[in-house]
Design a protein around this nucleic acid. Sequence first.
DNA 1: TGCCAGGCCGGGT
DNA 2: ACCCGGCATGGC
Length: 214
Amino acid sequence: MSKTKVLLEIYQKMLNSFGQQKWWPGETPFEVIIGAILTQNTNWSNVEKAIRNLRTARKLSPKAIHELDITELSGLIKPSGFFNIKARRLKSFINWLFLKYEGNLSKLFAQDLQTLRNELMAVKGIGPETADSILLYAGNQPTFVVDAYTHRIFSRHGFIPEESSYDEIKSFFEDNLPKDVKLYNEYHALLVKIGKIFCKPKKNCEECPLKDFL
DNA sequence: TGCCAGGCCGGGT
DNA sequence: ACCCGGCATGGC
């Protein structure tokens, strides 16, 4: 059976079991970007608290965060953990956004995908996963997001080598799936859903519903 | 109670 | 080109 067929069958199975995830859980592209940075190695429920703080303080816009004192910013995002480093990361992204795109997300996303991905990753605090999350979920660009669950689920069952790099795993999906934003969106969201339940670092895979395929 | 969370950076090999 | 410690809160 071809890899494409297997990947699509896995997708169907996840979709049948868990339904559409309707990611990203954010109301605006800007809010998606903030969430993408804040959720680095952090539970989403903690990120929600941080975003709620920002919303209540009326600091959920590029301009507001640009003008916000970094100490106040780190105070507001405290529940998301790593708050000092993340305050710096938010600031570095926003500074770059104003420097190059006048604080305007439409201008940011109106350019070639590869160029944009490279530029995003050059911003301090934005690595490959955060860049891809921003591009896919805030910019509706066809780039596949790889995360710890993706790597763990597919390597654990021997589908990809354990030592695969981020870009190797990303290519594995993109080379074998139709280039479709909606598909990439749901696929990643469903893998996170499955991973949270069945694929912890030191825990069972035994009941993973994808066992038959992988 | 320890483990885990939708990573990334910087310094050392 | 890898490897690893640090970063920190909150839920189960």
